[in-house]
Design a protein around this nucleic acid. Structure first.
Length: 308
DNA sequence: ACGTCGACCTGTGGGC
DNA sequence: TGCCCACAGGTCGACG
């Protein structure tokens, strides 16, 4: 469930169903699902055992669970074994998740049959009837454990420090984003998909926000005016909030919340996936163009291409 | 510093 | 029916 609204739906599910619980055992069924965890599956499972999960967090399409307790290093620090082993900078740990193209985090009863693409199972040390499962058909997603950025209020895992804040983050800096657009010699859709400029926007919501803004995806950003940037950001936020309100976009059963349920925003899409269907503003058939190994959908009348 | 491309995977649907 | 190709919501690193 790749883009921000879908990931946020999952984050809310994790917060409700697994935050506050303590990990008992972890099974890794496929090594690719932990490939960011370079120390391997056995280390991954060992480090997770005994950890207590904090409140689920999200930046763009990344999810993480800050953790406390557990492993030997953390225990040593917590117990204050002595000044020689007490780190001068206290850093935390977090379990990082990215869903890739087809990842799911499911909270399932223990006796639910294993999914065909079950990659990781997390059992908890409590009496609740559920476990957490990472299921991923294409194995582009995965889980890993990382140090958090020292002093960071969000306990951001260090490996995603390069990911920009997302447009639903209250600390997102609109003016700085506008300045970055002006500095770049790139085009607007490329910029929207650049996770170091603005995170959480993927192919669907980029096309939807551009349609709402009446902007062609090849528009250069260097000449954007402040009002144009403001309007674009407004549409990005509006479309994401609208999708979030109905559980996100699900074209098929791959994109589900932690309870396996699909969202309904596919019915409300104006551009994405609507090739040859009439533009809801002007009736002109929506076009699809190959673009960067994927597709761009746009209205050829409402979204005029820039002069070459 | 930018852009482009391929790699990483499995599965589905259309055309023949 | 099968086979082949195009395509699918993402990210990263190599290369120019």
């Amino acid at each position: 469930m790749p883009e921000l609204p879908e990931v946020e739906v999952v984050r809310r599910g994790l917060e409700r169903w697994v935050s506050g619980r303590t990990i008992d055992t972890v099974e890794v069924h496929h090594p690719r699902a932990i490939r960011r965890h370079t120390a391997g599956a056995a280390d991954f499972a060992a480090r997770l055992k005994g950890l207590r999960l904090g409140v689920a967090r999200r930046r763009g399409k990344y999810l993480w669970l800050p953790v406390t307790g557990g492993g030997p290093a953390a225990q040593t620090a917590a117990e204050g074994i002595g000044p020689l082993v007490t780190p001068s900078v206290t850093h935390g740990l977090a379990i990082l998740a990215h869903l890739g193209m087809s990842g799911q985090l499911l909270v399932q009863p223990h006796d639910a049959p294993d999914e065909k693409h079950l990659r990781i199972r997390v059992r908890f040390d409590d009496d609740q009837d559920t476990e957490l499962r990472f299921v991923d058909q294409r194995t582009f997603g995965g889980l890993s454990v990382h140090d958090t950025v020292p002093g960071d209020a969000d306990q951001l895992p260090d490996v995603i420090a390069h990911i920009a804040r997302d447009p639903l983050d209250p600390a997102f800096d609109d003016a700085a984003f506008h300045d970055a657009l002006r500095r770049r010699r790139t085009t607007v859709k490329r910029a929207l998909l650049d996770q170091t400029l603005i995170s959480g926007v993927g192919n669907i919501y980029a096309d939807e926000a551009l349609w709402r803004s009446k902007l062609h995806y090849e528009r250069p950003t260097a000449t954007f005016t402040r009002p144009r940037t403001t309007e674009l950001l407004g549409h990005v936020r509006d479309v994401m909030n609208a999708a979030l309100a109905v559980g996100g976009t699900s074209f098929d059963s791959l994109y589900v919340n932690v309870n396996g349920e699909s969202g309904y925003f596919d019915r409300s899409l104006d551009a994405y996936g609507r090739e040859d269907e009439p533009c809801r503003r002007c009736g002109t058939p929506i076009r699809r163009r190959p673009w960067m190994n994927r597709s761009s959908y746009f209205c050829p009348r409402c979204q005029r291409p820039p002069r070459a």
